[in-house]
Design a binder for these strands. Structure first.
Length: 234
DNA sequence: ACCCAGGGTCATA
DNA sequence: TATGACCATGGG
């Protein structure tokens, strides 16, 4: 879990270039302001983005897309707005915990003055903010040079044969950051491209025949890799 | 009628 | 420290 993971820089370059050429720039994060990006980061936990958009639209329609309004709503009223995003009771509590913290810290400008590691630790102390949500916020709202590891990343890298499926969050994050360097636009684009690849091609039932990476992927050609048979674990 | 989605917390062994 | 239950809507 805490073993150091090694990822050669040229492998990451190859991945980045291949995905970028195939999919084009992804223009992430979908969100208009840093605060909206942070709200989206919480709401998208284990949830399809289309559902998150509905919840954010509800907040906007209620003129409640700011920290004071969200913190001031009753948990029940907030949960109603969040309903389309799923887990609405859980997320209402998490969003209010986040907004109370955000206001107590003095808002965006005050937070932006903090060094990345300190900000990251503070985010992780907020109830409902785990490593991925914290890194979403750091990268896409505060434009800090961190890599966001998600389920797509782990699945893709494991199928490529680069890491064991069980690799922990921090070792994987460090490995990618080491290989890519502190390049915010590239860290932004790589995560976005991996999500695109994971949603369309490197799915739970992979579509290896349509995959730009198949020539270098250990998984291509395995049972189930054409998506017509059962998953490889059955 | 399934399976899945840009996770995190909490209880248990 | 590591696994498992739980949270819940909406699209394919």
């Amino acid at each position: 879990m805490e073993r150091v993971v090694e990822l050669a820089a040229e492998r990451l370059d190859w991945l980045f270039r291949g995905l970028l050429e195939h999919w084009g720039p992804q223009h992430w994060w979908p969100g208009e302001t840093p605060f909206e990006i942070m709200v989206g980061a919480v709401l998208t936990q284990n949830t399809a983005w289309t559902n998150v958009e509905r919840a954010i639209a509800n907040l906007r329609r209620a003129d409640a897309l700011d920290a004071e309004a969200i913190a001031g709503l009753s948990p029940q009223a907030l949960a109603e707005h969040l309903r389309p995003a799923g887990y609405f009771n859980v997320k209402a509590r998490r969003l209010q915990a986040f907004c109370r913290w955000y206001l107590a810290q003095g808002g965006f400008e005050a937070l932006r003055a903090q060094p990345t590691e300190r900000l990251r630790a503070a985010l992780l102390d907020v109830h409902g903010i785990g490593p991925e949500t914290a890194d979403d916020i750091l990268l896409y709202a505060f434009e800090r040079p961190v890599f966001v590891v998600d389920a797509y990343t782990r699945r893709l890298f494991a199928r490529l044969g680069w890491i064991p499926e069980s690799t922990g969050y921090e070792p994987l994050r460090r490995a990618v950051e080491r290989a890519l360097g502190p390049d915010v636009p590239r860290l932004n684009e790589l995560h976005a491209l991996i999500v695109q690849q994971g949603k369309t091609t490197c799915r739970p039932k992979p579509r290896c025949a349509a995959c730009v990476l198949q020539a270098q992927c250990r998984h291509a050609g395995l049972p189930g890799s054409d998506g017509t048979t059962a998953r490889e674990d059955r």
